[in-house]
Structure formats: C-alpha cells, structure tokens
Amino acid sequence: MLQIFQPTTFRALSRNFSLSVARRAFHQQASRPLRSSAKPLVVGCALTVSALLAFQTTVHLDAALSEKSDETIDPATSIAFPNTLHITSKVPVPNFTLLGVGVRTVSFLGIRVYSVGFYADLDDPKLNVPKSASPDEKIEHIVRNSACVLRIMPTRNTSYSHLRDGFVRAIQARLQLCRKRQQLSSDEEFGVQSPFRKFKSMFPSTPLIKHTPLDILVTAPEPGQPRNLIVRDLGSVQNDWLAREFILAYFEGDGISPPLKKAVVEKLQDFGR
C-alpha cells in the first residue's frame, strides 16, 4: 500500500484520478385522442404504445435493481453515495469506506448547495484509531493518518469557481483559527502560500452540472513526502498543512455541514481498536 504514495505515483494518480457517473432520464409524452374512423392507425398506435410501456417497465425494473443496498442516501437531497468508493486509476489506490453524508446549506434561506460524503481508508493497518477516544479525536486521527476523500455532489447547476470560493473561505478561516490556537508555525504559514495559490488557480469558471461528483482526495502521510491534495480532473498540490486542514475544516465545531458532522460522529462512536 505504501508504494502508491511515491512521487511518481503521486503524479500518475493526479493525472488519472477520475470517476464516471452514470445517469438515466426517461420522458413520456401524452398522445392526442384519435378519431374512430382511423381504426388501422389506432391499432398501430396501440401496439406501439404497448411496446413502449413494456420497454419502459423493463428499464424501470433494471434501474430499481441497480439501486444497490450498499448506498447511503442523503435524506435532505435524495442524492446517493456508495458505501465503498472505488477510484478508477492506472495506479493502485485503496478502497474508501463511507463514514457519513450531509447537506451543505448557505444563507438564512437555507439554500441547499451540495451534498457531501466523507470517506477514509479504514483498512490501513497503520491507522489504529483508539476506541476510547472521543468522536472528534477519532476524526482528527483518521484525517491525520490515512487517505481520505470528500465527495461533493451539487444539488443544482453551479460552477467550479463558485465551489472554489467556498473552499477558499474555509481554508482562510482555518488559517486564522490555527494562528489563534498557535497551531501554525511561521514556516508552515510561509510554506502553504504557494500551494494555496495553486489550489485557487486550478478551478475553471466552467459550469458543473448538478449531481456531478467532485472528488477531493488527500493521500496518506508518507515519511519524507508531503501529502497530496488532489481535485478530480483538475490537478493537485503538495502540502501537509493544506491537505490535512482542508479536510479538518469540515469537522470544526458543528462543521461546514452539520448533518455530515453528526453522521460521522455517530458512525465512529464504537469504532476503534
């Protein structure tokens, strides 16, 4: 497992980190009443409609069967997240376990912006989460010591730049908080500036269609190598502080998505060794 985090692997993973999302949409049209004088046409239309209905019924059943039991639905948005996330890549990466989902809302109107799922490599033998730790301590331990993924699923059509603005605000707030807590050395603060600028520049101003997943992966720590923060299809940056704190920002206090924080806390209550 550890060899996947060598520098060459980082670059290959950044280039090939991609997931495919399948969608199906079916539309029915109402037919106008036909005159009784056109009996052959009526018979033909009836057969055609019957065939279409049979086809649609078959497709509907196929769709129902594909609703796997290993998915978790965000109750606020009805968006589904796989309980096990398989990342398509030319280099081996771990399977990620879903720890919770939740909706991100903004403004006093409670507009739902996106659903988010938090995944981690719980099969990493080096993880060793203490069972006696508090849920918040378990979250921090997992983020600091294993590969993690945040899957962002917009609830409506948006843009990469709009999501970027939210991410940037979260990182800036995290910088201020770490300064206040004296958890950010001058060297760390200086070292994060260039990766932070690169992170901001990775996001284009192009649209992002609703329900399209945007996966943000943080690689596991490796001695002598900075952790990678990889944004699917857009690029990556290397910086331990930025990679770690980007994920931790989602769990500070009530969290960027309080339902996500609550779900992960509940999941981790009895987790550990």
Rank of each mutant, 00 (worst) to 15 (best):
H141E: 14
L177M: 09
I87E: 00
A38G: 09
K131C: 10
Q225I: 10
R227I: 05
Q172S: 04
D70G: 09
I4A: 07
L229C: 09
I87L: 00
S185K: 05
R151V: 15
V129T: 14
L234S: 10
V113T: 03
R151N: 08
A147Q: 03
P204S: 13
V218E: 03
T57P: 13
P125E: 14
S257M: 05
V237N: 01
G272P: 03
A249W: 11
T206Y: 03
F167P: 01
K68I: 05
S257Y: 04
V168N: 02
F55C: 11
R164L: 12
N157F: 00
P258Y: 01
L177Q: 10
T72G: 03
A63T: 08
K262F: 09
L175Q: 12
D136E: 11
I111Y: 11
L127R: 15
R15S: 08
I256P: 00
S236T: 13
Q225C: 11
P223E: 04
A80I: 02
S78N: 14
I256T: 02
Y119K: 00
I256H: 01
K126L: 12
I142Y: 00
D124G: 01
H162F: 07
M202T: 10
A80E: 02
S146R: 08
N95V: 13
L65Q: 03
D62L: 10
N83C: 11
G253Q: 03
A243N: 02
V218K: 13
R227W: 04
A38S: 11
L175K: 04
A30L: 11
Q238T: 14
D165Q: 14
L41E: 07
A243K: 14
S36V: 15
V264C: 12
I230C: 05
P40T: 14
F118I: 10
D240N: 15
L229E: 02
H141I: 15
H27V: 10
K267D: 08
K200T: 04
A220I: 08
C178M: 15
S159N: 12
P82D: 12
R181Y: 02
V264L: 13
V143N: 07
F203R: 01
A263W: 05
E189G: 00
V59N: 13
F81P: 02
A51R: 12
E252A: 05
I111G: 06
V59W: 07
T105Q: 13
D74V: 00
K131Y: 14
S37P: 01
N83S: 12
L85G: 01
G224S: 13
K39P: 02
D74H: 04
E245M: 08
H27Q: 11
I247L: 08
D240W: 15
D124I: 00
F118W: 09
L217M: 08
V265A: 07
S78I: 07
A51Q: 07
L52S: 15
N128C: 05
F271P: 00
L99I: 13
M1F: 14
A220T: 06
L19C: 09
F167W: 06
F196W: 06
